[in-house]
């Protein structure tokens, strides 16, 4: 449709916080009701702005966790050490509060079911958030694009969306989850127990001959290792999309 990719002037608006759900000890999902929302695509983000009483402002980007098909807009925020914005969002924000945001933002790290696959999603820590939006979108539109999520976390308690990922993987639609726990593993753990490296990618990634589409999101070091590993496996660089998040102040 003409105009679909034209940005309306990005304007700030105050969304109402509809619900808060603690996902892990350090992450919280914030369900939001913005007064003026034109929908989004899986992988896009919003900018959030906090203003102190003295006028000081701090702004951060957060990936949208919810699928476009879901009624409510959700972001999942990880509390960063000394993060002036994330500490507030995870610790202080209350249901019913207003939160200033603008979006949706971004058009590069986006996947829609029509983009096809096979789809490889590589997540480091809270880098799973935009990939979860893609996974939810895939499920809600009934896509059967073969999809494999390789998700690296420190411990089992740090795994965000653990139950929902289990349900998606059990759904018989061709969605697989490969987990690796880098710091500690519970008794009887059958997943991987190390950081994602070239060998792990070799074992878990779709063969390059299938011309897969890959999305990698996580800390910068994670993204660099994964992207280089996929190129070494023969993936087309143009079909590897990356999103780095770093300590932009939290």
């Amino acid at each position: 449709m003409a105009g679909a990719a034209v940005l309306r002037r990005l304007t700030w608006q105050v969304a109402r916080v509809a619900e808060l759900v603690d996902e892990t000890a350090q992450t919280r999902t914030i369900a939001l009701e913005p007064p003026d929302w034109r929908g989004h695509r899986a992988g896009q983000h919003v900018d959030v702005r906090l203003t102190a009483e003295d006028g000081y402002q701090a702004q951060r980007s957060y990936s949208i966790a919810s699928a476009p098909e879901q009624e409510r807009l959700e972001i999942t925020v990880e509390r960063l050490p000394d993060g002036e914005v994330s500490t507030y969002l995870v610790g202080e924000l209350r249901s019913g509060d207003g939160l200033e945001l603008r979006g949706p933002i971004g058009g590069y790290f986006v996947w829609e079911a029509a983009d096809g696959g096979p789809l490889l999603l590589l997540a480091g820590g809270s880098g799973v958030v935009p990939l979860m939006a893609m996974s939810r979108h895939r499920a809600l539109v009934g896509s059967d694009v073969p999809t494999r999520l390789v998700y690296s976390s420190r411990t089992i308690d740090d795994v965000i969306y653990r139950e929902e990922l289990g349900r998606l993987a059990a759904g018989g639609s061709g969605f697989e989850v490969v987990q690796t726990l880098t710091r500690a593993q519970p008794a009887g753990w059958t997943g991987y127990s190390r950081r994602v490296d070239a060998d792990l990618l070799q074992e878990t990634a779709w063969p390059a001959a299938d011309s897969p589409l890959a999305y990698v999101c996580g800390p910068t070091s994670f993204v660099e290792v994964c992207a280089a590993g996929l190129v070494d496996l023969g993936y087309e660089p143009e079909r590897i999309k990356t999103e780095r998040f770093g300590p932009t102040g939290g």
């Binding site: 980007s61 933002i105 910068t220 070091s221 780095r244 998040f245 770093g246």
Partner: peptide
């Protein structure tokens, strides 16, 4: 770790 990518300045 200070390196981000173009997604970060989409806004």
């Amino acid at each position: 770790e200070l390196k981000l990518d173009g997604n970060a300045i989409a806004g």
